[in-house]
Design a protein around this nucleic acid. Structure first.
Lengths: 338, 338
DNA sequence: GCCGGCACTCCCGTCCGGTGAGTGCCAGAG
DNA sequence: CTCTGGCACTCACCGGACGGGAGTGCCGGC
């Protein structure tokens, strides 16, 4: 087990390295943090920390740099989430409050998070899987063509055009619309399949095929859209990444364009607990030199989606975590008010 | 006026420089292109071209590099748009054909364009201003709360929640919905204000306020959404930009995140004519070292939106222009079929 | 267990000198 | 007037040499 002072040394190393981006040596450490011991002692501690794999030297006779394991320990044991200032919180709130619709909320959240953390922000659209149906609308576009519009309680709208096997009359369509809404409005998505199961039976034989098509499309939409969309922003902050550019940045940009990768990344994050994935802890190849800080947010008690930031492993964890947590909270509040 | 051979020399310089990214000298030129004259002659021509401002030397005793003006001339006079191969065209078509909805079409277009050109692709969502109303739907969420859903002929859906000044009954709402659709379904957006102008008068006094709210929101949606959304992709290709990284790439990434900037950029492009903006021809500060190739696309005869790519001024203009043109055409076709 | 001192390691910036690609200019041939 | 070969010149670039400096490990004393 590491002594208290060694942990302090590790903490100091992380803090300095995050600040300067340069390997930190024993002398500089004792000067900047009042550790009350001499550089020589710190050197011994550093040797021990290196032995344990918490820090490393880029090359002999250079300062030390934290390893992924070092950051891990720092995040788990040594760092407190840094709360935002009152002014910042107020700014967040008022910025988010002036959003006009869901797209705007998400867009603003992304920009906010990117600006606060000066890193790349990723925000998932509120999920359909947890949410409920507010309304289903059916419109006849042509005799045998129907448009299905699904509206969720989070304010999201999905639409699909359906080619029907047979023409359907206005009356039957209105009937279907009414019955459908009576059954599933206000219900969870997961409940929908069960609730509409026997619906076709109550229709005339001639309309039954069409009803089945509509229901099939509805269920498909629910499933398909459970895989969410997301918005990213602040990619310009990647330029602050490091010096050896193309090599570092390229795979990150590529990963960021792969929605699937990002969704998986966010999916692995905890809902109420903030999750920090450091360097190689990230499964994806291109993100092994980044850390991801993510958390769920939601309107009310339950998390409906995730948001987070992607940045270099050498990031200001307390600050980033503070910003992510605060933004998640406020977005949740805003959504709940809508 | 420049002699024919000098133009050929300029063309050769552009081609070589685009290929190698290195200043091109007189000897290399005569070797790679059979100009049938000696390096010395070429040198004289290059001196003339430099005099006229078409090419420049990064420093004395280095090869020449085209200037913005040089690229301009190249694009205007010396280059033919390079058509895509049959196989490429088929691939484009089948890739776009399997899109399921509008979002998917735009998403696929962006990916396609980014991949074909190996640059950053920008695609604007089909505009509402040129398009027509397919259907307006009104849903009572609560006694004094109505949701407005607007569906366009391009398959786009916009929704707004309206807080009404007074409760409105189901019947009145259905009435309003019916009359509204009767008047504006199939009409151009620009016509809508005129068409709904006198609608409130035909309602009872108690509902009139609500009707006015609804109409106001509808018109607002039309105006607001005329400023379009867009999708970008292929940002990872920015890493192939050059060597002096952070400096070059940062402003570009920033510009790409500013929807306003991009929209303005695309807005300046011609509708049916492909537009190429080279280097400093771009008004925006951050894009002075990039070129933008853009063109309108549309379902049928009229362009409803723009698409294009952003890349270094040193880009393969014929190839890029070919890809942009081809993609725009096919997207137009796909949209027309929907 | 802590500390001062010391020798050692290497990165990094700087300063050459050589090399080579490229240029401008000139004089001569077509 | 245009093209061409020749020639001197200019720099960017590369590699090696070199010193300074920050950092380390280790040792012996408190």
């Amino acid at each position: 087990m590491l002594s208290e002072r060694r942990l302090q040394v590790l903490r100091a190393i992380v803090q300095d390295y995050v600040g300067t981006q340069e390997p930190v040596g024993s002398k500089a450490l004792t000067e900047r943090h009042n550790l009350r011991v001499s550089p020589a002692t710190v050197r011994n501690d550093m040797a021990a920390l290196e032995e344990e794999g918490y820090i490393a030297q880029p090359h002999t006779s250079a300062g030390r740099v934290p390893t992924d394991k070092g950051y891990r320990l720092f995040v788990d044991k040594l760092a407190d989430v840094k709360p935002l200032s009152r002014a910042e919180r107020r700014a967040i709130r008022s910025f988010l409050e002036s959003a006009v619709d869901l797209d705007d909320v998400v867009g603003r959240t992304v920009r906010l998070l990117a600006q606060l953390t000066r890193q790349v922000a990723v925000v998932q659209y509120p999920s359909l899987s947890r949410s409920t149906v507010r309304h289903v609308e059916l419109l006849a576009l042509a005799p045998a063509r129907v448009m299905l519009v699904l509206i969720t309680d989070t304010g999201r709208v999905e639409q699909r055009v359906i080619d029907c096997p047979a023409p359907i009359g206005e009356a039957s369509l209105a009937d279907l619309r009414a019955r459908l809404n009576a059954r599933i409005a206000g219900e969870r998505f997961t409940e929908v399949p069960r609730l509409v199961q026997d619906l076709p039976e109550s229709f005339d034989a001639e309309d039954r095929g069409t009803v089945q098509s509509v229901l099939a499309t509805l269920l498909e939409t629910l499933v398909e859209e459970t895989e969410e969309r997301l918005m990213i922003g602040g990619t310009a902050n990647l330029t602050r990444f490091g010096q050896d550019f193309p090599l570092t940045i390229r795979p990150v940009l590529e990963a960021l364009e792969e929605q699937v990768v990002l969704l998986k990344l966010l999916g692995e994050a905890g809902n109420s607990e903030m999750t920090v994935r450091i360097g190689r802890e990230n499964a994806h190849e291109g993100l092994t030199s980044t850390s991801v800080v993510a958390v769920g947010y939601g309107s009310g008690d339950e998390a409906v989606a995730k948001l987070g930031v992607v940045g270099p492993t050498r990031m200001d964890y307390p600050g980033t975590m503070g910003a992510v947590r605060a933004v998640a909270r406020y977005v949740g509040q805003i959504l709940a008010e809508k």
